[in-house]
Structures are given as structure tokens and as C-alpha cells.
Design a protein around this nucleic acid. Structure first.
Length: 359
DNA sequence: AACCCGGGGTT
DNA sequence: AACCCAGGGTT
């Protein structure tokens, strides 16, 4: 059987030259791209790659500055309490990233930074993408990354609607420029982020348009086909606020959802609930806390990728001391719940102004 | 391989 | 309202 080379494979030298020339002229300047190409500061690259997992660059920039200011080097990170690490990550989502970053920092302080793909892959929170990224960007390793950008760019270049991870990795490995592996990886990702975008690609500006099978097909956006996603689950929960926005009883969330963060004591009660079952849950929750249930402060809605939460927030009273809210790392959901107190006070104040009564 | 894990941007 | 984002861990 004779293997027929595809049009992209035969044009690999031209493709490398065209994309790297575009990158040298139009690549993004980003704070984790300081220093020599292929020999960047591994700490800065590593933190950036973890932060950018499923997080858009524009959003990551803010957290990156904040995180590096709090933990300028790997020793500072390793020696910090986990609560401080989560506080720096607060609001960024996927909090297992922060916990794994902290764990890995301790290992790095013990053993030093790994110098190759396999060493990075062994660290918690580092998978195939991140290991290849750090190995190429900070150590000059010939490792091709495979992320959402690479997937889209290569699916379009080859006209493959349903690429598997193995398919993408094989093409990425073949295309990788051995002379500039780090720059090549950044170039493909920059192209995917700024030109070969999901919905409205700027094909007229693309340095690879002459080689692109998806563009030739007339419908470049049909590559790759959308991934099927799990349905959003609707759930309700009850939370109690013992204290106020400054001092409140908080519990550490265990398990997967928002794990590691602090939050109001909470009890999930399933998808559709009546007022009676909500009140029953409130009693159960207060019994566990040794607290006396108070009035309804309101409901908050919170949507996550895979969940739509309605949270019924009640005031409660107990003898247990609260803790300083500002010092704890909380999810957006808990910040919304705490915000109910403020809106409620404002509406009471407005009522007092209207009818002349005292608050 | 399928599922879970946040929060927000773009279209 | 989809669809996506510089993915990784668990089952």
C-alpha cells in the first residue's frame, strides 16, 4: 500500500515559514512571554499555563498579575498557606488548579524544576498540554502542544470535522518547527486566538489560507464540529447567613464542587422544591449547626457551565463565632448570597425615606 | 471514553 | 442560547 501524502504534509516547510513570519510580526505580547525564546522563566510560564486552562487570555491577565504579586517565586508559593493561594485565585474558577499548583510548588522546592516533558507531566495539575507548553517555552523541548486553538487550526487546515486527540497530536508533532518549538507553539495558539477564531475567522488575514482545506470547502466554520456537551442541571439549595457581610459563619466546601473554598453553610435539595421542603431543609441545616432559623433574605441565581443553581438564603442565629469574610476565599455564589444583606438594607432604607419611619 | 469541574466572553 | 476558552483528574 502506497501512502499518498496529503497537501498539508507536502507543504510543511512553506507552512512553517509563513506562520513564523506572521508570528514574528503579529504575535501577542504577553506578560508570561518575557525573556529568551525557548528559555523563559519556568515559574512564570508554569503559572500562566495553569491559569489559562479553560480560561481566556483576556481574563487571565488580571489574575496573573495578582498571583505573581502575591507569590513572586516558587518558594513563596510553596510556603504560603493554602488559604492565601485560594484567595489569590478567588473568582477564577476550577479551584483544583490552585490546590494542585500549591502541591506542585512544594514538590518543585524539594526537587527543582523538571527539565523535560515527562518530569512536568508527573506534577499534579500538569497534563499533556501543560507539560508540552512548559517544556517547549521554558526549556526548548521539541514538544507540540494540543489545546483548543491547535485543535481548531489543524482541523481547518486539514479539513477534518471530527479530529481525535491522537489525530491532532500526530499532525501537531509533524508540523512543529524543530528549530523554534516554543515560538511555533505560541504561533499556532496566537493564530487560533486572533485569526482562526471559532465563529468569525479572519481568513483574509491568515498566513495559511493558501493551504487551508476548510477555507477551500467554503464553510471554514464547520471545522471542527461542535463537541456535545452535558446538559445543564438545575438544582436548588438552602444556605444560612449567621452574621453579616463582614463576619459570618463559614464552612470549608469539601468534594468536587467549589472544593477548598469557604462558603455559607449550605444544603442541596434537588431540582424542583416547594416552600415546605425548603423550610424543612432549613431546619435540617440549622439543626446540624446548632442555630436558630431566621427570616428569608432572598434567592440568588447562579449559573455555571454544567449547573443552574437557585439558592434560598435565610438569616440564622447561633452562639458560634463567625470569621472574617474578607480573609476567606469564596465563590461568586457565596458573594452573591452575602450581597443579599446589602440589597435588603438598601431597600429598607429606601422605604424609611419614603414613609418617614425609622429603620 | 465519559463525566465532572467556574466563570465569563463572543456571536 | 449556543459555543467556547492556552485542560486535568477521576471513574
Amino acid at each position: 500500500m502506497i501512502a499518498v501524502p496529503d497537501p498539508v504534509s507536502t507543504a510543511i516547510p512553506e507552512i512553517r515559514t509563513a506562520l513564523l513570519a506572521w508570528f514574528d510580526a503579529s504575535g501577542r505580547e504577553l506578560p508570561w512571554r518575557l525573556g529568551t525564546e525557548g528559555a523563559r522563566d519556568p515559574y512564570r510560564v508554569w503559572v500562566a499555563e495553569i491559569l489559562l486552562q479553560q480560561t481566556q487570555v483576556a481574563r487571565g491577565l488580571h489574575y496573573y498579575d495578582r498571583f505573581l504579586e502575591a507569590f513572586p517565586d516558587v518558594r513563596a508559593l510553596a510556603e504560603a498557606p493554602i488559604e492565601a493561594v485560594l484567595k489569590a485565585w478567588e473568582g477564577c474558577g476550577y479551584y483544583a488548579r490552585a490546590r494542585n499548583l500549591h502541591r506542585a510548588a512544594k514538590a518543585i522546592v524539594q526537587n527543582g524544576f523538571p527539565g523535560d516533558y515527562g518530569g512536568w507531566l508527573a506534577l499534579p495539575g500538569v497534563g499533556p498540554y501543560t507539560a508540552a507548553a512548559v517544556a517547549s517555552l521554558a526549556f526548548g523541548g521539541a514538544c507540540a502542544v494540543n489545546d483548543g486553538n491547535v485543535r481548531r487550526v489543524l482541523a481547518r487546515l486539514y479539513g477534518e470535522a471530527r479530529p481525535t486527540d491522537a489525530w491532532i497530536q500526530a499532525r501537531a508533532d509533524a508540523l512543529l518547527c524543530p528549530a523554534r518549538p516554543g515560538a511555533w507553539n505560541e504561533a499556532v495558539m496566537d493564530l487560533g486566538a486572533t485569526v482562526c477564531t471559532p465563529k468569525a475567522p479572519r481568513c483574509a488575514e491568515c498566513p495559511l489560507s493558501a493551504h487551508c482545506a476548510a477555507l477551500a470547502s467554503g464553510t471554514p466554520t464547520s471545522f471542527p464540529a461542535p463537541k456535545v456537551r452535558a446538559a445543564v442541571r438545575t438544582v436548588q439549595a438552602v444556605a444560612v447567613l449567621i452574621g453579616d457581610e463582614r463576619e459570618a459563619v463559614l464552612e470549608r466546601r469539601e468534594g468536587g464542587l467549589l472544593g477548598g473554598l469557604m462558603g455559607l453553610p449550605m444544603l442541596e435539595i434537588g431540582p424542583q422544591q416547594t416552600e415546605a421542603t425548603v423550610l424543612k431543609a432549613l431546619e435540617v441545616l440549622c439543626a446540624r449547626l446548632g442555630a436558630r432559623p431566621g427570616e428569608l433574605l432572598g434567592q440568588v441565581q447562579h449559573s455555571m457551565t454544567h449547573r443552574q443553581i437557585t439558592l434560598h438564603v435565610y438569616a440564622a442565629a447561633s452562639d458560634s463565632p463567625g470569621q472574617t469574610v474578607a480573609a476567606a476565599a469564596l465563590s461568586r455564589l457565596d458573594h452573591k448570597a452575602l450581597g443579599l444583606l446589602r440589597t435588603r438594607q438598601e431597600s429598607l432604607f429606601a422605604t424609611a425615606l419614603t414613609d418617614g419611619s425609622s429603620v
